[in-house]
Amino acid sequence: MPIKPLYDMQLGERIVTLMAALVLVLQIAMVAQRWIVAHIRIFAAQSFFLAAIAATIAWYNHAPHIYVVAALTLIVKVMLVPILFERLVKRVEIQEEIAPIINVPISVVIAGGLTLVGYVVAESFYRPEEPGLGHNALAVAISLFLIGFFTMINRRKALTQVLALLSLENGLFLAAISLTYGMPLIVELGVFFDVLVAAMVLGILVFRIRESFDSMDVSRLRRLRG
């Protein structure tokens, strides 16, 4: 009996690989981005593709609880967090561009190099005898993680560092979902709650930093203020 195309594992692997590649491209675009609102929207788009990956993995592994994870990603990371941050941007009236420490062309090339590191590391986890959707996705996840770290180091402003942290979290999420096909639902729920609370707390923190220092530049956080 021929396998129906929608249940064909190979097609599933292709779709997941493609979307993982898109996530990676968006991560590199984030490194190159200068406007904070565009930065937030790229993060939303990246999270959207993550949700799509989760849904695809749920479909091919017949794991209904991953659909819940996908839906949560959609609600929290694609809608709530970006809306929260865009409001914050409006409130603190950020006008200026993001000023990275290393200039953008070199940052982008470094991001490319980090992707290579990600692939080399993921290669050692690869076991061809175990069929699965995860191989490329794991490499992309490690790259997201590394590039996220790099972006955090490379930025001066608190809000952009928070966004880099969240994209790093996206990498963790991708690794978890592609290796284990979904952790227990209760763990996922905890993680999402964490992300939401972290985003809110960091948002308030950013606002406070701005209030008391007239800037979001973290390199100014050297003196204590009463």
Binding site: T17, L24, V25, I28, A29, A32, V104, P105, I106, V108, V109, A111, G112, T115, L116, Y119, E123, N136, A139
Partner: peptide, 22 residues
Amino acid sequence: VPELLAVAFTLGALALVSTFLF
């Protein structure tokens, strides 16, 4: 403009490398 082209270059390098890795 060099930023845009650096993105293009990185994408091209990734493309070439990922033909060996995928």
